[in-house]
Amino acid sequence: MVCIELRQVTFQYERGKRIFENISIKIEKDETTALLGPNGSGKTTLGKLMVGVLRPSKGQVYIFNKDSSKMAISEIGSKIGYLFQNPEKQFFTNSVYEELSFVLRTKKYHEDYIKEKVDKILNTFQLQGLERQAPFLLSQGEKKRLALAAILINKPDYLILDEPTLGLDGRRKEILLDTLSKLKKQGIGMTIISHDDNFVKAIGDRLIGLSRGEIVYDQRT
């Protein structure tokens, strides 16, 4: 099933050069897609276009066969979990516990249910004992894990992860690989933007290489 499709997308930043010219991609839901490429090749930009954070100057983006320009960002966000390259951008509260629970609370879930969910996810991402810590004071690797946990607690159908292994140590990378593999088995597809060749090769089914805003290779392993 195609989950995200870019149709002849052209994109240019408000004050900047043209990044993409007439680019078309179909991303399948049931495989893990990896976006690779050197710094500044447009990976983050492409990721943001895929999730509607940036709107194309020309062309359309379809998310689950729906024109994304007609969807509210919150609607996209409840289907697709997006991990920012800089996780600080997605922290809103003063404690790890709050950070994981506040969205559930606005959706009026029962407090006991919330607690159970939060405890479980804290465990998965090895963040136990940090519940009272302020997200902004966490280490780089802990921030990435918290941001990912906060996304997964919303149960998205698809994930776009911008540099998920950045700042993680070897052991934590293995654990992340393990967690992502489990999600994959549960049927949650993902696109991983990364420099980390080993990581990507371990989990990716399809590798897309970007260079200066163009797709230079697109292969399945």
Binding site: V51, V53, A72, I73, S74, E75, I76, G77, S78, Y82, F84, K89, Q90, F92, V103, T106, A150, I151, N154
Partner: peptide, 14 residues
């Protein structure tokens, strides 16, 4: 940026 990020969490601000 923050407005976008919080909406991406599935919160429909409007």
């Amino acid at each position: 940026d923050s407005l976008t990020a919080i909406q991406l969490r599935g919160i429909d601000i409007k």
